[in-house]
């Protein structure tokens, strides 16, 4: 079943269109990797899909209904968003940030129930931050902060997860953990869209790859369909070598 679908989606900031006429669908169990050069509109596409940024034309549908027809809180219950970075003006603890993920389920007055606390604890456990609940987020490293934001999104138990470069500050161990987390979620029917720069990371997690260039979708399909040296040359201006590995996805090596 299609969870989230963009059709002829365009949007940007202050009248300038950054994303143009993108068609993209995320079904249950899909993990779509969005790749493209800097400034191609990847983060903007993610914001449009999350409904944080209103589309200038086209539409995003959540379970067949336009995002605009849902209440913001209902969207947040179904769609988890992991931003690249968040500015922490106040000394929040790891637990306080993760608990924010339950907000869409709580409304203005209701205090968190044991069920909410359990979801938060499970999310922190899953990203490896169990035992760090009381740590001040402001003091964490960039990678640990990314894990806290991931935990916050997991705590909301979304049907669709949108991640904006979630792996950039992670060490190799945590990158592999993230791959495992995304595979677990998609195995349970969650749909995911992950913006990444690392092709090899994308090929590990994604069953579909979308390439953005100048705000337009340049290619979308299975990794095998999209992974062509001509595309790299056209979009990134680099030559790559695809190192085939029996029984595994190929490895992308750029040539200097």
């Amino acid at each position: 079943m299609t969870l989230l679908a963009a059709s002829a989606l365009s949007g940007g900031y202050g009248g300038a269109e950054v994303v143009r006429e993108v068609d993209l669908a995320v079904a249950e169990g899909d993990c779509v990797a969005v790749l493209g050069p800097n400034g191609a509109g990847k983060s903007t596409l993610l914001r449009l899909l999350a409904g944080i940024l209103p589309a200038t034309s086209g539409a995003v549908e959540l379970r067949g209904r336009p995002l605009a027809a849902w209440r913001r809180r209902e969207v947040a219950q179904a769609v988890g968003f992991v931003p690249q970075n968040v500015s922490f003006a106040f000394p929040l603890t790891v637990a306080e940030v993760a608990q924010q993920g339950r907000a869409p389920h709580l409304g203005p007055w209701r205090p968190p129930s044991p069920r909410d606390h359990a979801a938060v604890a499970a999310a922190l456990e899953r990203v490896g931050l169990a035992g760090r609940e009381g740590a001040a987020v402001q003091r964490l490293s960039g990678g640990e902060r990314q894990l806290v934001l991931l935990a916050r999104a997991l705590a909301s138990e979304p049907r669709v997860l949108l991640l904006d470069e979630p792996a950039t500050a992670l060490d190799v161990r945590h990158q592999l953990d993230l791959v495992a987390i995304l595979r677990e979620l998609t195995a349970k029917g969650v749909g995911a869209v992950v913006v990444v720069h690392d092709w090899n990371f994308a090929l590990r997690v994604a069953n579909r790859v979308a390439v953005l260039h100048g705000g337009r979708l340049r290619a979308v399909g299975t990794p095998e369909e999209v992974l062509r040296p001509e595309l790299f040359r056209a979009v990134f201006g680099v030559d790559v070598e695809l190192v085939e590995r029996p029984g595994d996805v190929p490895f992308v090596v750029p040539r200097a």
Binding site: R47, A50, G51, I52, R72, R73, E74, V75, A76, Q77, V79, G80, F81, P83, V86, S87, F88, A89, F90, L92, V97, Q100, G101, A103, P104, S156
Partner: peptide
């Protein structure tokens, strides 16, 4: 409380 960590982040949380 959600707005204190930024508008984008708050919007994403409903």
């Amino acid at each position: 409380g959600l707005l204190a960590t930024g508008e984008e982040s708050a919007a994403a949380l409903g």
